[in-house]
Design a binder for these strands. Structure first.
Length: 494
RNA sequence: GGCGCGGUAGCCAAGUGGUAAGGCGGCGGUCUGCAAAACCGCUAUUCACCGGUUCGAGUCCGGUCCGCGCCUCCA
């Protein structure tokens, strides 16, 4: 078995992965702020860490995976204010958060993202945050200013090591107007005193609410311990969020915080970061209207998780065709009758897969292994007997797709033999005109086309074929006049 | 300005120092009533550029150019 190596942002190197406790992995990934629907960038992050999650479990680790839900934040509060509605501001924020938390899970489910073990919410962990803040004040690394509490960056010697920044440079280049309350512009808020119309909680220093960074420290260390193995998130979180999180966590516990920091690359549009200010944000739900979620996932898998991935409809379409190639192979193999897909997976193929994935989760290289087997199948399926070992290699390919979270779907549907339909041209015309492609209509059309072909009525048979093609359904004619239709069930009307 | 990542065929993309995976697209052919799917062949003498190390470099080192990101909320 290849040894797993992961790229650690903190050391900027690939390192041999050795969990704190043999056989167990504790992993934390920054979750969403639930004030809106998820966009492709979220999908990228959570699919990337889902693959990591799945691969670690495939390697036999018992994984404890924690992902927080930020249900308290400026954006959420502002949004809740705009929407109005009944109840106090706390209740309104909670309602908004519930709605988008639910939407988040729906979207992730559609992308086959496995559930984490815990989804702690910020608002449910405020006492723990306060406990940490008090301890930090007690240790002299945090200070109070009025009702606010700030972390004193200068009191933490390792500050900047994660993001590779030098605190002096940061000071010099600080773009934010210096807040007079802070000792240094780099200091960040652990607790903010209550403002008018904001949700707040009592604290020793007065009513207020926690800063953003402290929530991750509170929830990760509560559920995973002071030191844990993997901390993940998008590259944009490295600074300042993760740098601050690390500083306050280590200052609090006096121990190392996360041992490996993993960060995924961005989704870009025309090579630029997708962001609200550029107005180029693609909402997942909109994308799902055009491309099935599994195609979106497959698209994401085509690039290494740390590289930027450029989104375009062309690229998604391409991913869809590539996935079809694998689905189609799976469908044909399955249809061949032999029970090849339940054979034990070929050991050499799996070992190549392990090598690719153990090299910092190289999914693109892993997929190349799958394509290779798919090609071998296509080269040989017409032969009376498949080459030795190919069936178990196919089984391995299917297993690999499963570990990557892509369940193969058989797109080939054998159509029943042509029925005796009187007036089949009229029936075909009616269905085409109606433009409602149900299972029954599809079968009827294929039957009509069979009749037409038997009678060498090429005009009608081609018209039916063209119509089906428009609807995304391909027909495959075989020797002996049998026909199969190629489509995914979601393409049909209900 | 500081820090970081990257530049591989028409496009996407992998690449432990040993002589360029894979996918998509395109072209020609096979199969087919014609197609579709699939197969076969072709589609990078070369890895942004310039030097260096080496028997040997896309892969290591130095420099140049270009793109992107972070330094402010952000997956």
């Amino acid at each position: 078995m290849s040894e797993l190596c992961v790229y650690n942002t903190q050391t900027r190197k690939k390192e041999l992965f050795q969990p704190l406790e043999p056989g167990r992995v504790r992993m934390y990934v920054c979750g969403v702020t639930v004030y809106d629907y998820c966009h492709l960038g979220h999908a990228r992050c959570y699919v990337a860490f889902d693959v990591i999650h799945r691969y670690l479990e495939y390697l036999g680790y018992r994984v404890t995976y924690v992902q927080n839900i930020t249900d308290l934040d400026d954006k959420l509060i502002n949004r809740a204010r705009e929407l109005g509605g009944g109840g106090d501001i706390k209740a309104r924020v909670a309602r908004l958060a519930d709605k988008f938390t639910e939407a988040y899970f729906e979207d992730m489910d559609r992308l086959s993202v496995l559930r984490a073990d815990h989804y702690p919410a910020a608002t449910a962990n405020i006492p723990r945050m306060q406990e940490i803040i008090s301890a930090l004040i007690g240790k002299g690394v945090a200070y109070q200013r009025g009702g606010d509490v700030y972390f004193e960056v200068a009191a933490f010697p390792g500050y900047g090591e994660l993001s590779g920044k030098n605190p002096d440079d940061l000071q010099a280049g600080a773009r934010v107007a210096v807040d007079g309350k802070k000792k240094s512009p780099l200091d960040f808020a652990l607790w903010k005193s209550a403002a008018e119309g904001e949700p707040s909680w009592p604290s020793p220093g007065g009513e207020g609410r926690p800063g953003w960074h402290i929530e991750c420290t509170a929830m990760s260390t509560r559920l995973l311990g002071e030191t844990f193995d993997i901390h993940g998130g998008g590259q944009d979180l490295v600074f300042p969020h993760h740098e601050n999180e690390r500083a306050q966590s280590e200052a609090f516990s006096g121990r190392p915080f996360a041992r490996y920091w993993l960060h995924n690359g961005f989704v870009t549009i025309n090579r630029e970061k997708m962001s609200k200010s550029l107005g180029n944000v693609f909402n997942l739900r909109d994308i799902f209207r055009k491309f099935p979620p599994r195609v979106v996932r497959f698209f994401l898998l085509g690039q290494h998780y740390r590289s930027p991935v450029d989104y375009s409809e062309e690229a998604l379409g391409e991913a869809g065709r590539a996935l079809f190639r694998i689905d189609n192979c799976y469908g044909m193999a399955r249809m061949s009758g032999e029970d090849i897909l339940s054979l034990p997976p070929d050991a050499e193929v799996m070992s190549n897969f392990d090598a690719a994935m153990s090299d910092d989760f190289n999914t693109a290289a892993a997929l190349a292994g799958v394509y290779k087997i798919v090609e071998e199948y296509y080269q040989n399926y017409r032969k009376p007997k498949l080459p030795a070992g190919l069936p178990s290699r196919l089984s391995a390919a299917k297993k690999i797709c499963g570990v990557l979270g892509v369940d193969l779907v058989d797109p080939i549907h054998e159509m029943p033999p042509a029925a005796r339909i009187s007036d089949y041209p009229g029936l075909a015309d009616r269905i085409i005109l109606e433009n409602k492609l149900t299972e029954g209509n599809l079968q009827a059309l294929v039957s009509c086309r069979e009749r037409a072909r038997q009678e060498e009525n090429w005009e009608l048979s081609d018209r039916i074929r063209d119509y089906l093609k428009e609807r995304g359904v391909a027909v495959m004619d075989r020797k002996g006049k049998s026909t199969a239709a190629v489509y995914y069930p979601e393409q049909l009307d209900r």
